[in-house]
Design a binder for these strands. Structure first.
Lengths: 364, 364
DNA sequence: CGGTTAGCCTACAACGTTGGAAAGCAACGC
DNA sequence: GCGTTGCTTTCCAACGTTGTAGGCTAACCG
């Protein structure tokens, strides 16, 4: 059948273990022996059996990344970054899509859907604080996102409130007085929607603008389609608007679309800013100003934290890491002329803190 | 350490093999025995060790999907579909990004980057016909795309020439006379660029339009940025254009951007059609007409073919499968009014044929 | 020159599971 | 009443690798 170490050993005239030693770079091997073994490996086309190795070493060098779905550009780009970061560290990434309901998310944590990987990077969409107990798992876990704070796991999140506030203030600084927010989740206390909405209100406060509930456009799912609908509703209701803060870029792109079909000029009539800084933002018409939440850094940090737990390098208390985020000004806010390149117009610094503070988790 | 079948067996008072039989759904087990085993499993929180199982059964129920990069929307959506299709068949997908050069693609095939999976779905971007020998691998392989025809593997591809021809004819049928093509690869004989350009020329012929080299805008990489550049070059050179066939949607979106910045109306001044029908096409401004190459069907078929080879259900000659493709008319070609929904305006039927024809591979 | 050390290599026993074959046992048929 | 049959369970030996412990040289030291 397949070539095994047995076969290589036979041909090289050494023991199996010596072949193993060669393959694993054990230093004390006579050059002549190493050469014979390598010749045999090449000649027989030997490939190590990773499965057997994993059984023995209890490591697979694979990690799971669980995200809602890859067709959402933010998650596709996140996956790209995570895969690269993992690759740099010699790991392969197995992807689980959990978009098909809460149950899938539970399965990911309970391990039903976590085959043989050494650890999990999980970005929940449905699970919330009430499910905190589920996060107490016996394998290395890094949580992403804003759904769950205080889980017994490392956590990489965003500067949501501060960045949303800055985005709102930025619109205000451009002279906008009627700033709508697109993508709100009525009554929700947790998650990106709540945090970013909080930042929006703080931004209004700081700018001395009143909060008007009529300016809040709900959108359950954060897709382009729902963004277009929400924006459309607002406009069709005759709400006066001269600025839009969309809670993510997909919503913002949908909003641009709705504004366009109603013949409103961006940024002339309405300035628009999104959140996530997906690749699309650079090529939409007009190009979209956005908040860059530090995706690269999120991916790298998540992988690093996970690796540290897997290897046992880190055994201390869980951490919460918040990368720096930046506001990127583009055409949709008039920060650059048409055809110009986006540029940072503000930076919010992140940091690290314990994942389980003594007091109630503070929105950061 | 972790709970093993040993522990379960001890608690249930049966042999290890009986536990294995229960876990694997072996039918001939006394209900009382099964119950005891299941109680023990629940009580001890036993989880099967997939690594050990894989070593024994020589199956991991994982497959590799190798694509250039997930941040390209087409591949993100393809990955989404493949993961879902795999999931429906009880498989997990491991993703390799090969965007960082030819070497990575070679590694994927030689197995250096194919850990423990049962098979590979591979969409090459760099490898071409000259690398045919590399595709003669000893594991189940399904090839996607247009780089390589006639490899000793199942192949799922697109109706490239026919669909590109239809797209061009569609533009002509709208009265466009000066139809540019964006994304050409000068001198390249293989790959999507060549096939779709061939279709473009066939379309011109059919429509009785002359071929004008000035209307061909090269773009090495198919990104939005390169599409914008290529389109911009064309316009800045003063080439007269009233229609654009972009070889994929990313290019088309870039082209839309370039047209917009030069204050040309789409579809008024220039009608634009893309290829791939990515999600973006439905929400760009204006919405983008495109060729839907049957992505879902590609993913499903690819997984099915791979599974058939893995399980040994299929051992016959390799197949080439071409899903049906459709032209979706949207605003950018004026097929629907602003705010309207895209709709199919033409269908090209696919089919199945041997992957290694007796004659030279014919472009399909 | 004998004893120690360092370098190199091997034997053996796992890792946790499943395939195959055989054994135990009850019911069945004649 | 005894061989046969069929269900149920067990025993044993892999799957291909690596950790541990130990053995054998050759070199080195005093």
């Amino acid at each position: 059948m397949a070539v095994t170490m047995q076969d290589v050993a036979a041909r090289a005239g050494v023991s199996i273990k010596t072949v193993s030693n060669v393959v694993n770079g054990y230093p004390h091997i006579r050059p002549a022996t190493r050469e014979r073994v390598e010749e045999a490996i090449d000649h027989l086309g030997y490939r190590i059996n990773e499965t057997a190795r994993s059984l023995r070493t209890r490591r697979t060098d694979m990690i799971t990344l669980a995200v809602p779905e890859l067709s959402l550009p933010y998650f596709a780009e996140l996956a790209d970054s995570v895969i690269q970061a993992a690759d740099d560290r010699g790991l392969t990434v197995l992807i689980e899509q959990t978009s098909h309901g809460r149950e899938r998310e539970v399965d990911v944590l309970t391990g039903k859907r976590r085959n043989m990987t050494d650890g999990l990077i999980f970005s929940p969409l449905e699970l919330g604080p009430e499910d905190l107990a589920l996060f107490d798992v016996d394998f290395p876990l890094v949580v992403l996102g804003e759904r769950v704070f205080g889980a017994p796991a490392d956590h990489v999140t965003m500067n949501n409130v501060a960045a949303a506030k800055a985005a709102t203030v930025h619109l205000a600084s451009l002279g906008r007085k009627r700033i709508a927010v697109v993508g709100g989740h009525e009554g929700e206390q947790v998650g990106s929607a709540a945090l970013r909405t909080t930042g929006y209100r703080q931004g209004l406060d700081e700018a001395g603008l009143p909060y008007d509930p009529a300016l809040v456009a709900e959108a359950g799912l954060w897709h382009r389609s729902t963004g277009a609908e929400a924006m459309g509703r607002l406009l069709d209701d005759g709400v006066e608007v001269d600025g839009v803060f969309a809670l993510n870029d997909a919503l913002a792109l949908g909003a641009l679309h709705a504004l366009h079909t109603r013949r409103l000029d961006v940024p002339g009539d309405v300035a628009v800013i999104g959140f996530d800084d997906i690749d699309d933002a650079r090529y939409s018409v007009p190009t979209l100003s956005s908040v860059d939440p530090g995706r690269e850094q999120i991916a790298q940090t998540a992988v690093d934290l996970l690796v540290a737990r897997i290897t046992g390098t880190e055994t201390g208390p869980f951490r919460r890491v918040v990368p720096d985020s930046r506001i990127i000004g583009r055409e949709s806010t008039g920060d650059v002329p048409e055809g110009g390149e986006g540029r940072p117009v503000a930076v919010q610094e992140g940091g690290t803190e314990p994942a389980q503070p003594l007091t109630e988790p503070v929105a950061i």
